[in-house]
Design a binder for these strands. Structure first.
Length: 816
RNA sequence: UGGGGCAUUGUGUAAUGGCAGCACAGCAGUCUUUGGAACUGUUAGUCCAGGUUCGAAUCCUGGUGCCCCAGCCA
């Protein structure tokens, strides 16, 4: 996926959304000749699954529109940033397959240019040095309801401001002594516009620029500037920056950038059972809850990579997500499904026993070898080229994709595949029961030995003729040839769906120290999260380690193969800890397990593992909106007192026949009532309706350009019967779009006329019916809701000119 | 209580005034030498109340709920 050109992806990366639509429009109107986007992570942590969505949007939008994308390391705050993170981010992005070519930028490479723009802003009188302490500045900024007050330094001269800024840069001042602020509007209801800070003093070592700078630009100053400097056209960011857009636009206009970038905001996508807060992830690492940023249970990309998830799976997951302006939390199953779906066609099937139980086949004296296929028939059938992969990746015909597995007298089977007293529906081995050993034949269990604790030690079985019936299939390994291995069985790090959301109440005092049993903590506490702290929702069973065996072939194959251990899940060797003489396999993901859902009937109990079906979802309680269904009617605000003028208007409009709801709306809105002050004549009611319902927003917001006379003229035309309401309103909509024509002129130019002749309408209806025989049948079978569909089709066929009421009448007749 | 943003089945999304569709999850079943995969069927939704319109998830009004903003973080 290179930034420029990118042959094999003719398909779109992104489903159409409000941002891609804007991009297409901007391209079409020539606002930009090429789209340039950027993904701007701050190198103060590693990328995680939450970033993938933003990154796919940024990069995908550019790629889909034939544009170019940049990677930008947004490193303007030296605290917490490092080259390790900057490099890690690039590695992870490359792993995903992104390639920005030479378009790698560091904000810190632009420090000198930012500074020059700061001086320019001062010279324009648009910025000043403020020298009040931080808490004083906060006080002066006011509150949501109280305007801010200017600091005593707000009106310093250009010369003084310039001098101070230069001395700030020279390092003459201590941290906090001065800041550079934009001079915008201290009374603005948007708090972001109350003279935002542009530069601050920080005597800190920057990981790239060292000690060269002791003043650092703030996001609101740096980000728009760098977008402009890089030639970015569409700058996407998440919703919480919506208010910041006002600063963005102010800066671009004040400094006169043209063409200039524009900011668009989208809703974030978070994932159930995971946290994405950098601070919290760091805490998990620091407190040793996990082994590091790449602990396979972490949501970071490097962790998912180590886990064994493929970049394709991650990208598929991201691509499946829609873009809109709502923050949303995605069901973890969507991610898991992407991972499984990818692995199903990628991972050869082999056998491994995670928790071994010794099984002796009493009627088998010598070891034999069975040839087992790496792939089930359905994967073979689904192969496009008829070939399937060997563990090393080589693609061969299905007959060659096999391995020899020894079958000796002594085997290991999964401990949970043998039950002395089986639960209902158990399809595995029981004393006296029969089961198929995958690929090796049917056995019947006989006696078994237990230790003094009641644990089964050995099961004795006999091989049966192939004609025998078996209740199920279990996997196994040959004891003599199997290779011992450690298995790491990962599960969700958190036991509740929304560990961060649970934390919605300030940590209170030291009740933290209350010790709780991990199991009981899940249910009632999540509903009552006093003293909430996300660490309290850790899943104690997020890592389970077992020791068992893998079949011989696995140890002989490549170390980086992802396998499906049949009936257990997808695994691969831990790339960090596994060694040839001490194999360690991590479970990438379980198989879907319909049986697991029936937890109550299950014999083996893994208390530590939260079952998907039963795990507390614990999303914050849906507010009691539904409970207030029978609230008192809110439809009587008319009781408010009206001014004499308003009362007169009410009388006048009512006399003209204007609907009551519209009247009260008109008189209470100054602009609307001014617009309709001259309203008169026989068509007043229609005109008022249009003014309120069709032009409503623009009139009330003061940017309507259509004179009232245009509406009256249109109403006259409508009354004449040559056009339909629909045509009138379409013309209205187009005329209010800002053109020079009146609605009537538009109708004349387009030659719009209502079509109401029965013959012509019947012809149209006939054509629609012929084109949709299935729908006609459905309608006649009773699906009357389809009448709207037919009306719509006829309207479309007539170019919107058919008389809908006539159409409806005729339709009813013709459809029977 | 100032400003801004948002609201479609359990979850994520589509429908740009004309059949409320899709995926995941759920449920039922078929098939199966993986309780996997695949396949079939199915449950379930336009936040509420008005209005405009032949017709509203979509346009208008009012309400409700959730999120963001008062860092010298990004």
């Amino acid at each position: 996926m290179t930034s420029e050109g990118h042959p094999e992806h003719s398909a779109r990366l992104l489903a159409p959304n409000f941002i891609t639509e804007t991009i297409e429009r901007d391209l079409k109107t020539g606002r930009y000749s090429q789209i340039v986007t950027r993904f701007p992570p701050e190198p103060n942590g590693y990328l995680h699954l939450g970033h993938v969505f933003a990154c796919s949007l940024d990069f995908g939008a550019a790629l889909d529109s034939g544009g170019r994308y940049h990677l930008r390391l947004d490193d303007t705050n030296p605290e917490g940033e490092s080259m390790e993170y900057a490099q890690g981010i690039q590695d992870d992005l490359h792993w995903l397959g992104w390639d920005w070519g030479e378009h790698l930028y560091y904000a810190s490479d632009y420090f000198e240019q930012y500074y020059q723009y700061a001086e320019k802003l001062i010279q324009l009188g648009a910025a000043y040095i403020d020298s009040v302490p931080g808490d004083e500045m906060r006080r002066l900024r006011g509150t949501a309801t109280v305007a801010g007050t200017p600091s005593e330094y707000r009106d310093r001269s250009v010369a003084e401001n310039l001098d101070l800024l230069r001395r700030m840069r020279a390092g003459e001042f201590a941290e906090g002594a001065h800041v550079l602020r934009a001079k915008i509007d201290l009374g603005n209801p948007n708090m972001k516009l109350r003279d935002p800070v542009l530069y601050r003093i920080l005597h800190a070592e920057h990981y790239r620029s060292g000690a060269k700078w002791c003043i650092y630009p703030m996001y609101d100053f740096q980000h728009p500037l760098q977008d402009a400097l890089e030639g970015v056209t569409h700058s996407m960011c998440s919703l919480e920056f919506t208010d910041n857009r006002a600063i963005y636009d102010w800066l671009m206009e004040t400094l006169g950038f043209f063409p200039r970038p524009h900011q668009y905001e989208f809703g974030r996508r978070s994932l159930e059972y995971t946290i994405v807060s950098n601070r919290k992830l760091r805490r998990l690492v620091q407190e040793g809850v996990v082994t590091g940023w790449d602990d396979p249970r972490m949501p970071t990309l490097r962790a998912q990579r180590r886990l064994g998830v493929t970049p394709e799976a991650v990208l598929t997951f991201a691509a499946g997500m829609g873009v809109n302006k709502t923050n949303r939390t995605v069901d973890i199953a969507v991610y898991e499904n992407a991972v499984r779906g990818d692995l199903n066609f990628r991972a050869p099937r082999v056998m491994a026993v995670l928790e071994p139980l010794r099984l002796v086949i009493e009627n088998l004296d010598e070891t034999r070898e069975v040839q087992l296929s790496y792939w089930p028939h359905d994967v073979v059938d689904a192969s496009a080229d008829g070939l399937v992969a060997l563990p090393g990746g080589e693609r061969v015909t299905p007959e060659l994709a096999t391995r020899a597995v020894p079958l000796g007298r002594e085997l290991y089977i999964e401990r949970e595949d043998f039950a002395v007293t089986p639960p209902r529906g158990f399809k595995r081995l029981t004393p006296g029961g029969r089961v198929r050993l995958r690929g090796a034949g049917i056995i019947e269990a006989g006696r078994f030995e237990m230790d003094e604790a009641g644990q089964v030690q050995t099961v004795y079985a006999t091989l049966q003729p192939d004609s025998a019936k078996a209740s199920g299939v279990i996997h196994w390994v040959d004891a003599a040839s199997a290779v011992p291995a450690e298995f790491r069985l990962y599960d969700r790090l958190f036991s509740v769906a929304n560990p961060e959301g649970q934390e919605n109440i300030e940590e209170i005092g030291d009740a933290d120290e209350v010790e709780r049993d991990a199991v009981e903590q899940t249910v009632e506490e999540t509903q009552n999260p006093v003293n909430a702290d996300f660490l309290r929702f850790l899943n104690p069973g997020s890592l389970r380690v077992t020791h068992g065996f893998v079949e011989r072939s696995v140890a002989q194959g490549p170390a980086d193969t992802r396998y499906q251990f049949e009936r257990q899940g997808y695994f691969w060797q831990d790339p960090v800890d596994s060694r040839p003489d001490a194999l360690i396999f991590g479970r990438i993901i379980t198989l879907r397990d319909a049986w697991a859902g029936r937890a109550g009937e299950k014999a083996t109990t893994e208390k530590a593992t939260p079952e998907r079906a039963t795990t507390e979802k614990a999303t914050p309680e849906k507010p009691a909106a539904r409970a207030t269904k029978e609230k008192p009617a809110v439809t009587a605000p008319a009781a408010q007192t009206l001014t004499p003028q308003q009362s007169a208007d009410v009388a006048r409009l009512t006399a003209l026949g204007v609907a009551r709801g519209e009247v009260s709306l008109i008189v209470t809105d100054p602009r609307l009532s001014a617009y309709l002050a001259e309203l008169t004549g026989p068509y007043a009611a229609v005109v008022a309706g249009w003014a309120v319902n069709d032009l409503g927003g623009s009139v009330r917001e003061g940017h309507n350009t259509l004179p009232l006379s245009d509406l009256t003229e249109l109403a006259e035309l409508l009354a004449g019967g040559s056009i339909s309401t629909r045509i009138a309103r379409e013309a209205l909509a187009e005329a209010s779009g800002g053109g020079q024509e009146t609605p009537v002129q538009i109708i004349g130019r387009l030659g719009l006329r209502v079509v109401s002749g029965s013959a012509e309408l019947e012809r149209l209806i006939g054509a629609v019916m012929d084109a949709n025989p299935g729908k006609v049948a459905e309608y006649r079978a009773g699906k009357k809701g389809l009448s709207g569909f037919f009306t719509g089709q006829v309207m479309k066929a007539s170019g919107g000119q058919a008389d809908p009421q006539k159409v409806a009448q005729l339709l009813e007749k013709l459809l029977g």
